[in-house]
Structures are given as structure tokens and as C-alpha cells.
């Protein structure tokens, strides 16, 4: 194990333990709720970036993968109410398979067909869920959260801790992929798919790996959703916000490294949480949309890229 990898794992472990320690100290429920949402976006943005930023394939259906995780959990809760980790695993499994399936059908063609398929996917899955009365149909259903959980003073704090751990894990997954031969192959695919294949990169396998991992992480992020909102309905689980934010955040932060989506999700997510208090949700969306278009047009490498450029310029001046 390399020195770099050891350091990264230690930081990850410290963060997870740290988020647990916070729950023993602080009581304000509003902060936990807000932090949960931001952390959820860290997972979604990181997951999106594994396919979008590393491999170069745009997924417009984050909401679909997220909601499939959430509704897999709802279906399981309605049947036998398994513990949360089972929900996480199953949510990840279902959405991962969904990613694999859509990828298999469309990724052998020109990449844009994958994007188009994911665009339509959310609409159709939402319609199917809305017609499935077992999980509440279009009107939605109430989910009772477990009354108590050991070691935590209430369930919201527990959910915060779970999402914090998931965020750390997904950033770690992205980091591991990026630093491995898999990530280097993905970058080659993103840069030039034809050349990558001719240099021995198994492009279809890597692309399917990316859609599967990315989809699975989104599903895992969605699995605790029904416990978090208490009342789940298709319009909230499939909300376009997830699709927009999860691609806007990496675009704003920077897409080629693990750091970009993390920075983007923390900044934009936190700003949104603050803005919900002061601005209407529409204005909120308008700002995200404008930022997205603005960054794509004017700062293609995101904040991380801008920062790198500034640093290079400063170093140049010193030299």
C-alpha cells in the first residue's frame, strides 16, 4: 500500500469517527437535516462524476437512480422492515443493475444515446412508481422511522452519521478509481475513445463498470431517503433537482479529479441550504441553472481548475 493511499484511508477514518463524535455533542436538529442534504449531494455528485467526469458520459437520470434506491427501500420496509444496511445494499444493487442495463443497451452506440436514454428514464420510472400502489403510488406513503437507535440520541442524528460515512466512502471509491489503472483507462476513453481501444483499453467493460458503480452509489444515497423525509412521494424522489445538482456540482467544482465534485457539492449544497431560508425555491433553481451554464461556458475546468491556474500564475510570478 502506497504512502498516499494510507494517508487517504486515515483521513477517511478520522472523518467518519469525527462525524460520530459531533452527534454526541450537538443537539440542533435543523443542522443535522441541512448537513444530511449536503452530504447526500456529495455522494450524488461524486457518483455522477465517476461516469461523467472520469469517463466522459453524461448521465441526466441521477433522479432515476436515486429514486430507485429510495423506492427499493420503501418496498423492503413495507414487506419486512430490514435494518438500514440491508436497505443500503439492496438500493445500491438495484440502481447498479439499472445502470448496467441502460449502459449495456446504449453504450455500444454513440455516447449521446446513453444520455438521451437516461433523460427519458426518469420520466418513465416515475410513471411506473406512480402507478404502483404498493409503494404508495402517485399520492405517496408515510414511512415510520425506527423510534430509537443505539448510541444515538435520535434517528436524525443517526441518519446524518450514515450519510457522512457514505459520503466519505464514495469519495474514497472515486479516489481509488482515479488513482488506479481503471481510472487511467477511463481518462483515455474520455479523451479519445477510438485511440483508447487501439491502445488496449477494454472500453465497453470500463464504461459498464463506470455506469454500474455510479448508479449503485446513487441508489445507496437514495436508500435512507424515505426515513429522512418520513413521507415519500414520486415527485419528491424523482425531483429534477437531483439531476441538475448532481451534474452542476462537479461542473462547478471541476470534473477531472475527486476533489471537484466534493468542493462543488459542499459549496453549492451549503449555499442552497442557506438560500432556502431567504430565497424562494425557484430563485434557488435559477441560480444553480445560471451557475451551471456560466461555468460550462466560461470556466470549463471548474473551481479546481481556476484555482490551479491562479496558483500557477502566482508561482510564475515568484520565479
Amino acid at each position: 500500500m502506497s504512502k498516499e493511499r494510507k494517508l487517504f484511508l486515515i483521513v477517511a477514518a478520522v472523518l467518519i469517527v469525527g462525524s460520530f463524535l459531533i452527534t454526541t455533542q450537538m443537539e440542533n436538529r435543523f443542522y443535522y437535516k441541512a448537513a444530511y442534504v449536503v452530504l447526500q449531494y456529495v455522494v450524488l455528485a461524486t457518483a455522477w462524476n465517476i461516469l461523467g467526469g472520469y469517463t466522459g458520459y453524461v448521465n441526466f437520470g441521477t433522479a432515476a437512480f436515486f429514486a430507485m434506491g429510495a423506492y427499493t427501500a420503501v418496498a423492503l420496509i413495507k414487506t419486512w422492515k430490514p435494518p438500514l444496511y440491508v436497505l443500503l445494499v439492496m438500493g445500491g444493487l438495484v440502481s447498479g443493475l439499472l445502470g448496467l442495463g441502460i449502459g449495456y443497451l446504449t453504450l455500444r452506440l454513440k455516447g449521446v444515446f446513453f444520455s438521451i436514454a437516461t433523460l427519458a428514464l426518469a420520466v418513465v420510472l416515475q410513471m411506473i412508481i406512480s402507478n404502483w400502489s404498493y409503494v404508495g403510488g402517485g399520492a405517496g406513503t408515510a414511512i415510520l422511522k425506527p423510534r430509537s437507535v443505539p448510541m444515538f440520541s435520535n434517528y436524525d442524528e443517526f441518519l446524518f452519521f450514515v450519510m457522512a460515512a457514505l459520503a466519505v466512502v464514495s469519495v474514497a471509491v472515486a479516489w481509488l478509481i482515479e488513482k488506479s489503472w481503471v481510472g487511467r483507462g477511463m481518462a483515455a476513453i474520455r479523451d479519445n475513445e477510438e485511440a483508447a481501444e487501439c491502445m488496449g483499453v477494454p472500453i465497453l467493460k470500463l464504461k459498464l463498470f463506470a455506469t454500474t458503480v455510479s448508479g449503485a452509489l446513487m441508489g445507496i444515497a437514495g436508500a435512507p431517503f424515505s426515513y429522512f423525509v418520513v413521507y415519500i412521494e414520486p415527485t419528491s424522489a424523482f425531483h429534477l433537482d437531483y439531476a441538475v445538482n448532481s451534474l452542476a456540482m462537479p461542473m462547478i467544482g471541476g470534473t477531472t479529479t475527486w476533489l471537484g465534485p466534493l468542493v462543488g457539492a459542499v459549496l453549492v449544497g451549503t449555499a442552497q441550504q442557506i438560500a432556502t431560508v431567504t430565497l424562494s425555491s425557484e430563485m434557488n433553481l435559477l441560480i444553480v441553472g445560471s451557475l451551471l451554464v456560466g461555468f460550462v461556458v466560461f470556466a470549463p475546468d471548474g473551481l479546481v481548475g481556476l484555482f490551479g491556474k491562479i496558483r500557477a500564475r502566482l508561482a510564475g510570478r515568484e520565479a
Binding site: 453524461v58 474520455r190 452542476a248 461542473m251 435559477l286 451554464v293 460550462v296
Partner: peptide, 16 residues
Amino acid sequence: AESLRGLVFFFGLFFL
């Protein structure tokens, strides 16, 4: 850059 950022640009327009 049309395959990634160009696509995202149109998506952003849609949303806006």
C-alpha cells in the same frame, strides 16, 4: 468539447 460540456450546456438551457 461537445460530447460532455456541450450536452450539459443544452441541459442547463432546458432547465433555465
